[in-house]
Design a protein around this nucleic acid. Sequence first.
DNA 1: GACCAGATGTACT
DNA 2: GTACATCTGGTCT
Length: 208
Amino acid sequence: MIAKRPPDRRLRFDPDELASVEAARPFYRRATVAVARDLIGAHLGRRWRGRWYGARIVETEAYLGAGDAAAHSFGGRRTARVEPMYAEGGHLYVYFVYGMHTCANVVTGRAGNAEAVLLRAAEGPPGAPRVLAGPGKLCAALGITVGDSGRDLVGGRELALFRRPRSRRPRIGVSPRIGVDYAGEAAAWPLRFFDLDSAAVSRRSSGR
DNA sequence: GACCAGATGTACT
DNA sequence: GTACATCTGGTCT
């Protein structure tokens, strides 16, 4: 059993205060690119000891399954690690990389598609500057571990995603994905989305 | 901006 | 057994 990690205390938030709506299954079942775009500005919430902690997502990347050389499920690869990617949209796929970092993805589309959206960065309250700038830091700050891989975000008791209010539509930038140079032609696909006005979007990946 | 080390799980031979 | 990974933070130019 993998030990659970507590979230960063500074990320405390009240879902009601945001007037946000928890994303339901149909939200995740749509095209991966559409979900990746709509996740910008949404809040990822983690419940720890009865309280909610969370952050506003400001950077995502779409991974398009078997036909995408940058995706873990490229060519239909199906191992114990990537198995959660084959679940129905709305599940979480978490993996450990470079011996020290954890990255969280939201599975999209229908079961078997193996498509997902990587959560690259989020923004906390003013008291938590840059603690979420990068997929590894985002997971660390929210206490997400590989033990959360395969968890369902829909109706989840510990992890949930709250959609952004319609009134707050961020300015969204688009660029190729980060760190996937090995993926050949797929490396240039414009599948990275980010909030143009967020300081948490990593420098390296700011699209310049 | 470019370059590089770091620590270890996962996939593959 | 071995290569390398959807990174990060530090150093140097």
